[in-house]
Amino acid sequence: MAGDLQRDDGYDTSALRHHGDVDAEPGLLDFAVNVQGVAPPGWLRERLAATLDGLARYPSATHDEAARAAVARRHGRRPDEVLVLAGSAEGFALLPALRPRLACVVHPGFTEPEAALRGAGVPVTRVHTEEADGHRLRPADVPAEADLVVVGNPTNPTGVLHPASAIRALARPGRVLVVDEAFADALPGEPESLAAAGDVPGLLVLRSLTKTWALAGLRAGYALAAPDLLARLAAPRPQWPVGTIALEAVIACSEPTAVAQAQRAAEGLVAARAGQAAALAAVDGVTVLPGAAPYLLLRLPDGSGERVRGELRAAGVAVRRGDTFPGLCADHLRVAVRPPEQVARLVEALEKALDKVLHEIEVPA
């Protein structure tokens, strides 16, 4: 369903700037952030540590070229079709440099692109996918006049994986099509990815390395697009925008052995996700919405979400609130896929929280 045009004038973007790291305070069992693991694997830590002795020197063009070449080999692209970023979030922050006349953001979805566009005074319209329709993307709902469109695949927070054909249907002459593939490498075989699709006009794919490799504190990612589009995107960047350690991370995580390791991890996540979904669906009052990503979107009974979140926090469990995602409400929660022993703790806390909150709703004080 196409959304109404919502311009920037006086718009409060504070909710759009809320992310899971705010929910995951130290000491809480973290289901709010979608990073896998608590630290990078040992081989990657050693690889990054080896760069420390060179930090007295500025990041070099040669190092950047090596990073772009590694990404290009990984996706079957040319090095000039790669832009190394300080995390994919930097790519969203750069979108206003493309000077769109009207941006369209598909929601529910990652909110940082809209926040960046609105903050720069770009008119934004929203297109909402519908829960009753499985949050399926309908390309016809996107206004024809939108010259920049942003969509996630798989989408955060719904976890829905859209067919590549539906994404391709959004492309048209004069339009930049931004596809957020931050979680694409968490799916075995990276189905429906357009990272290698150099034939789609105006396509800009953004990738993150922070989720699979536990590098959220480093900020490492990249963009894939035609060279002229990347040049426009990069125009406002400062000198040396990506540090030496992040450049090395991009190289290391793009090498065949690392890609194979990510594939194995993704295969493990499929089984873990299925088990976690079944355990949560067995909790009375919890609906687990369909998805494929390494997180699950839950819907709780009407009016219970905010209080349940509070009870979970009191029990030492952090989950991602849903009401800061356009199109969702306080009764939606997003939870990361975690090991079974942690899932058991979440299930126990959720059962107790729902029992208490629903009793209070039925029998007001």
Rank of each mutant, 00 (worst) to 15 (best):
A140W: 08
A225L: 12
L29N: 04
V82S: 04
A49I: 12
D21H: 15
L346P: 00
H162V: 09
H75Y: 14
V363T: 13
E348F: 06
A231E: 12
V150T: 08
T13D: 10
D323I: 06
L137C: 01
V317A: 04
A349W: 03
E65A: 15
A293L: 03
V105T: 13
D331S: 07
S165G: 08
M1G: 09
A231Y: 07
V151L: 11
A281P: 10
C104E: 03
P108A: 07
G121I: 09
D64M: 12
L218H: 06
P339W: 00
L215S: 09
A132D: 14
P26N: 11
L170D: 00
A266E: 05
G221L: 10
L206V: 04
G291W: 03
V176T: 14
P26D: 07
S193Q: 04
A115Q: 02
G37F: 10
Q6V: 15
G202Y: 05
G291I: 03
T62P: 05
L289C: 07
N156R: 11
D323L: 05
H75L: 08
G42L: 11
G54F: 11
G202M: 03
A144H: 07
Q6G: 09
R74H: 06
G109W: 07
P236R: 12
L94A: 10
P294Y: 06
P241L: 14
A86Y: 08
G217I: 11
T210N: 13
A315Q: 04
L206K: 04
A196M: 10
R74N: 02
A274H: 14
L102S: 02
D141Y: 01
